[in-house]
């Protein structure tokens, strides 16, 4: 899958789960940049992302992402 496509689908998931239509994702976006993104919504995001992209992440992968860019890399590598 193209990286652009991953980002646009990710953006949809983020907007839907976090209930905020103004979210724009870049490689360097982190939880600090989005108010609604906390430790609880993080899990909801992961569940939704796994469902959308039909992938399963390992715990180590999830815990080691530093930003949305690394999350997108991980999806691309699957």
């Amino acid at each position: 899958m193209e990286r652009n496509e991953i980002f646009s689908r990710l953006e949809e998931v983020f907007r839907d789960v976090l209930d905020n239509d103004e979210i724009v994702l870049t490689d360097t976006t982190t939880a600090d940049d989005i108010e609604e993104w906390d430790s609880l919504t993080h899990i909801q995001l992961i569940v939704a992302i796994e469902k959308t992209f039909q992938v399963k992440f390992t715990s180590k992968e999830i815990l080691s992402w530093k930003n949305v860019g690394e999350l997108a890399d991980c999806i691309q590598s699957k």
Partner: peptide, 21 residues
């Protein structure tokens, strides 16, 4: 505790919905 205990547990229980939480 959130980073080293809660998050790994929450990730492991993520498919159990709110009961996992």
């Amino acid at each position: 505790i959130t980073d080293y205990v809660f998050m790994p547990l929450n990730i492991a229980f993520r498919d159990w919905g709110k009961w996992g939480l």
